[in-house]
Amino acid sequence: MLRLTNVQIMYDRSIEAVRDVSLNVEPGSIVALLGSNGAGKSTLLKAISNVLYPEEGEVINGTLAFEDADLKRIAADEIVRRGIVHVPEGRRLFPLMSVEENLSMGAFLKTQAQMKADLERVYTLFPRLKERRNAVAGYLSGGEQQMAAIGRALMAEPRLLMLDEPSLGLAPQIIDQIFETIVALNKEGRMSILLVEQNASLALDVADYGYIMENGRVVLDGPARDIAGNDDVKEFYLGFGESGSRKNYREVKHYKRRKRWLS
């Protein structure tokens, strides 16, 4: 469905954010893209949505294909029309508009009738949003904002939903609820999902396939179960030692603590 090959992305033609990344999303699957801050995950999502140019970012090499379309050549609105919808990092709601106006913006490319139907669908999925439909989006709690951001994306009826750190800054209970919704969308709505996360155990739990990025490169990929079972991933992303017990980082030998995938 989505196929990236050897993608290289630079900011300002001088800072390399992503190098030689290849990534596939198969129809109906959940793909997790993991990695620490600054690994290039969000940059990759922005490249797929073709919204890098306001930040002076540019895809220098490689191809980004969605079905038979070359994503580098079509504008952001056409990408949304073709079915890729991106929930940006930090929610990015329109802060001074009401929840319902935010949601209706998600259906910008749809007809009035489709919008009405989708609005009902989103309200059934997130009853909390219906209660707060007239509230100013900027004053919602973090969890409500994330629901509104996902709801807004669903209004565009995506076939591939890209979520950028949906768990960021939320209480564990809310995170569970959000992830349950994501799985439900995938299982019942047959929606493909590309999930960017820092919370590796959570993401690998729901994903079918995983990629780990570091310093702009994919350092490990495989079925989510294999990745979750990998010793290095366990130690550096999931927080378990080889014995499966918790680890005190002060006692880890210096050279080991500094181990990275590429050094």
């Binding site: 991106h86 990015r92 508009m97």
Partner: peptide, 16 residues
């Protein structure tokens, strides 16, 4: 109005 508040978000909603 949405574009005025957050241009990138508006782009992601399919606004030209």
């Amino acid at each position: 109005r949405a574009t005025a508040m957050d241009e990138t978000s508006a782009l992601l909603m399919g606004v030209d």
